[in-house]
Simulated scan of single mutants.
Amino acid sequence: MYWKPSIPLVIAADQEIKGIGAQPADIVRVGIGNPHIDLLDAYVQRTTPKPHAVLNTGTAGGMGDTPGSIFVIDKVVDGTSQGRDPIELAVPEWAQDLPRRTVATVDHIVDDPAEHEALKAHAQLVDMELYDLAVRCQALGVELYSVKIVSDGADDGAYTTWLLVAEKISQQLGAYLRKQIG
């Protein structure tokens, strides 16, 4: 059963899309690691009226939080070696009830304990797209919100765990989003 969110969703993976269950027309699929981030530009430019905001949602690796926990993201940091400045994100009115987290965006799956600990010094969650989406939304003049659910521990076996739980855990996230913005 599909639902129509009141704000366009930006999601990375097909497993997350299927679990969340929104109308495909209201989803911009950017792919894991941002191979198609330019699709966000195309979506914003062809949509009339231009959306005032988009919501990046889906899974993230946790660095201490329990899988299945849902968070609103209020800051994203560059977890790569590029050294770009952190970006603050707005917290939408409808997500004020959620605990806040910082995401570190990296360009690969984190499954190394040493890297996990290094990232944990700057963030509580890790993903592969949010930082670049924030940069792109700033350039487009579109507000970016982000709500993530923890899928794995961003440690040894993270990818295998993600494959096993991404669609199911995204159903929990979809239920929250339908209640808040559906």
Rank of each mutant, 00 (worst) to 15 (best):
M1W: 02
M1S: 14
Y2I: 12
K4I: 14
P5S: 08
S6D: 13
I7M: 13
I7A: 09
P8T: 03
L9W: 08
V10E: 07
A13N: 10
D14T: 11
D14W: 02
E16S: 05
E16H: 08
G19E: 04
I20E: 06
I20P: 08
I20N: 10
A22W: 07
Q23F: 03
A25Q: 14
D26F: 07
V28Q: 05
R29D: 00
V30S: 05
G31H: 10
I32L: 15
G33N: 06
G33Y: 01
N34G: 11
I37G: 09
I37N: 12
L39Q: 13
L39R: 15
L40E: 11
L40Y: 08
A42I: 14
A42K: 11
Y43Q: 02
Q45N: 14
T48N: 13
P51K: 13
V54E: 05
N56T: 04
T57L: 03
G58S: 07
G64N: 08
G64L: 03
D65Y: 12
I70S: 01
F71D: 03
K75H: 12
V77A: 07
G79E: 04
T80F: 08
T80D: 08
T80E: 11
S81I: 07
G83H: 10
G83W: 11
P86Q: 09
E88Y: 05
A90R: 11
V91L: 07
P92T: 04
W94I: 03
W94L: 06
A95E: 08
P99D: 13
R101N: 09
T102I: 15
A104F: 05
A104E: 03
D107C: 10
H108P: 03
I109N: 00
I109M: 10
D112L: 08
D112V: 07
A114D: 14
E115C: 00
A118T: 10
K120R: 15
A121N: 05
A123P: 04
V126L: 04
D127I: 02
D127P: 03
E129M: 01
L130W: 05
D132N: 14
V135W: 01
V135D: 01
A139D: 12
V142R: 06
E143N: 09
L144K: 06
S146Y: 07
V147Y: 03
V147K: 02
V147D: 02
V150Q: 04
S151A: 12
G153D: 13
D155E: 10
D156N: 09
Y159Q: 11
T160I: 04
T160E: 15
T160M: 02
L163F: 00
L163G: 09
L164K: 15
V165C: 08
E167P: 10
E167Q: 15
K168T: 12
Q171D: 00
Q171A: 12
Q172E: 12
Q172M: 02
Q172P: 00
L173P: 06
L173H: 05
G174I: 04
Y176H: 13
Y176L: 15
Y176P: 04
L177D: 10
R178F: 01
R178L: 05
Q180R: 15
I181L: 14
I181G: 10
